[in-house]
Design a protein around this nucleic acid. Structure first.
Lengths: 221, 221
DNA sequence: AAAGCTATGGTACTGAGTACCATATCGACA
DNA sequence: TGTCGATATGGTACTCAGTACCATAGCTTT
């Protein structure tokens, strides 16, 4: 019977009880009893009651940190995108568990707060990473923060669409969203392009303006 | 003695106790006793213990909603900027209270969560307003969400700098931050500007190029 | 003066979270 | 094999936030 770990048994027991009686009407005693363990053991596995709905949070957060750490100055943005994708993929792999959680976090404030907190933690990791990538100066603080929140927001947007059943291709939508976010910030990045700068060029010619201008118009489109 | 309202007395009592003994070691009974009221009255004034650190939240949130509601399609972005500014100004007016709160939210997780929740509520209001302004279609959902989070993030960034004593001119910094955020999204807005488009202008002149070019350089900078 | 409304205080209860102690299980090692 | 020690678990008792309910004081209304 005890093939699953204690944590896993507690998690399934909790989700089942929350589904049957609702979150408020399921006590920690109930959860522990259904999992076949004592109440004390519950609080050893989870710091608080609401943590039971995000049992893999620490693992995923560590994976995100590891993915970011395994990057260079040139591949930083790819790392950000892929690290965020790790989070999405974890939810996708959870399947029905993720959808159950969504039902719960949508209706129970305490659980919504718990999920918001977890997203804040991802955001913090991204912010520190991006800020470090930008050099860590105070002039890039706001930009780093904006970028981090945007990445997390884009992730959440696609995730929520999938949870609501509004998309069959969450990964493709995620890539699109992430690309548009990174494009948004493209001009203020360290590896900057010259896209925004305009050059004024003056040529000397003996040809008539009347013949030159239509040709110029054609080039500029 | 009871010139202040019950809510105000409870608030000052709470901040004083939190400062003396810390949040965890101040019970709701202690706060109520110092304020000269019963415990029941505390929970009538505040839904939970941690709400006491944001006594004006509902008021400010309503002010933000009102400011947004009093705008037209053309003035939407100004309204967003000024609504966010309302929040900042409220913190600035609080002065030391705001700084005390910052100390508390920085060190006590429960209070940090409370503040995050309040920011989430602002964000939600901004998101819904902006999305409505964009027409409410599903193709603008992500953009609206990104804009709302960015506005709130920029606000928080400047607010935190002021709370840490890193700036003497929070309002000016706020304006700068807000402008840069709105610029960031300028190209995807309904009232788009022609800022990003370049014009090619050709003049006819009889003057020598050698005298014209230095003057042009001076203009362009 | 009686009725009613509102704000407040008090009491009793549930349940989360903590502290502490007791016990069981298992492996290492003599 | 028996013993020690580490780790996981269970149980008990406690604090305190939050809720429900009732009683009462003060004030207005009729």
């Amino acid at each position: 019977m005890a093939t699953q770990s204690v944590k896993a048994r507690l998690t399934t027991a909790a989700f089942a009880l929350f589904d049957e009686r609702g979150y408020e009407h399921s006590t920690v005693d109930d959860i522990a009893e259904r999992a076949g363990v004592g109440r004390t053991t519950f609080f050893r596995a989870f710091p608080s009651k609401d943590d039971v709905i995000l049992p893999d949070h620490e693992v995923v957060l560590s994976a995100v940190k590891a993915r970011l750490a395994a990057s260079t100055q040139e591949t930083a943005l790819v790392a950000v995108s892929e690290a965020a994708r790790l989070v999405l993929l974890h939810y996708l792999q959870e399947g029905d568990v993720a959808r159950s959680r969504y039902k719960l976090t949508s209706s129970i404030p305490a659980l919504r707060h718990r999920e918001v907190t977890s997203m804040q933690q991802y955001q913090r990791v991204f912010r520190e990473f991006i800020h470090g990538w930008m050099g860590g100066g105070s002039e890039t603080g706001l930009k780093a923060e904006l970028m981090a929140t945007s990445v997390v927001t884009a992730h959440n947007y696609v995730l929520r669409r999938w949870l609501r059943g509004l998309t069959e291709r969450p990964e493709a939508e995620f890539d699109a969203a992430m690309t548009s976010v990174l494009e948004l910030f493209a001009d203020i990045n360290p590896n900057r392009s010259a896209e925004d700068e305009a050059s004024l060029v003056i040529f000397r010619t003996t040809r008539q303006l009347g013949s030159v201008i239509p040709a110029l118009r054609k080039i500029i489109g």
